[in-house]
Design a protein around this nucleic acid. Structure first.
Length: 122
DNA sequence: ATTCTGACAGCAA
DNA sequence: TTTGCTGCCAGAA
């Protein structure tokens, strides 16, 4: 029986929240990067879906640091105000122009790279 | 129960 | 090069 397994430990969502919170200030990441880090690969859609719930999560999840692979602020529409996401990013030193990160490659933070290998928790 | 959508990404034409 | 479809997982109607 056990039709349903134990779910991937904690929901994939929790992983999204944790990784997103691990994104350093002034840095951004992409949905696909997080999805890949969680092992979902192409389930980037779920990452965005999880972030949608992040507004009710505590502590605050810097969802504004998560963009699509184009560096576009695709999710800004969910922040309440059309500029909230951009304001937050600029506030952290990220340069935004035309709803897009200018130096996206410079501020891009990939968990599957940054956290892979020497991730040591204390 | 089934069907569609959803803050995306990758591949084919 | 760009445009479009498919794939992915989970939740809501």
């Amino acid at each position: 029986m056990a039709t349903k397994s134990v779910n991937t430990g904690n929901s994939f969502f929790s992983g999204v929240y944790e990784v997103t919170r691990l994104v350093p200030k002034g840095r951004v990441t992409s949905y696909g990067a997080i999805a890949r880090y969680l092992g979902s690969g192409r389930s980037a859609l779920m990452v965005g879906w999880a972030l949608n719930k992040s507004f009710s999560q505590t502590p605050f999840v810097p969802a504004h640091r998560v963009l699509n692979r184009n560096g576009l602020l695709t999710g800004k529409k969910h922040f309440g105000t059309p500029t909230a996401m951009q304001q937050l990013l600029e506030n952290e030193g990220v340069i935004i122009e035309n709803n897009k990160v200018v130096n996206f490659k410079e501020v891009f933070w990939d968990p599957s790279i940054e956290l892979t290998d020497c991730n040591n928790t204390t």
